[in-house]
Amino acid sequence: MDLELIRMKDVMMQYKNGVTAIYNLNLKIKKGDFVFIIGGTGSGKSTLIKMLYREERPTKGEIIVGGLNVARLRNSKVYKLRRKLGIVFQDYRLLPKSTVYENVAFALEVIGTKRDEINKKVLKALELVGLKGKIRNYPDQLSGGEQQRVAIARAIVNQPKLLLCDEPTGNLDPEKSMEIMKVLEDINNTLGTTIVMATHDKDIVNKMKKRVVTLKEGRLVSDEEKGKYKNEAI
């Protein structure tokens, strides 16, 4: 049985303006892992996440996510990958004119799930993030932390194998950030979802004691199990 969920081999990514964001990256992530991608501004951590959900295509190399060759995926087939993973952003990206329930249900509706199944899954996901009481609210009636939890519910409602997080706590204060991290850890433990999270929040990385992949100027500089945030590496 193949336990690898993500495999990146000799990946290089150069933007059209000539800036190289990633040099020769080799990375393997197992099923059920919780991995932090850390690094300063311009280290390439966001680019790495973007390549995993095929927002960007690598210039060279191979990226396999859950058996799909992401580097070669055509635009019109991107949805196949997106249905296998959930994505959470710093700015939540919720539909402002839809309620909490509708925002989460949206992810299932666009793939044609049955109504009663949607209802069940949405309530379950919202319960998991602790927002079952606010399903009729609109995003602007919620705090930042709550909005991020809605985004997480939307990302996991389809029970994906992989959850990608790009600075999910970037807009939140330390207390709310830890709440989010608890929700993520809970998802990792109870659902077995693989989580890859890009962050530059030192406290979070140090408290969570998970695998830490450090990037510096587009190069992988360290990869440690139960790692700490290394200032000298950045």
Binding site: Y53, S76, V78, Y79, K80, L81, R82, R83, I87, R93, L94, L95, F106, A107, V110, I111, G112, R154, N158
Partner: peptide, 17 residues
């Protein structure tokens, strides 16, 4: 635009967008 990008994000096919 944002709505469309979110649709793409959650795995909507081009047709259903």
């Amino acid at each position: 635009k944002r709505e469309i990008s979110i649709m793409r994000l959650v795995g909507a096919g081009n047709f259903s967008i």
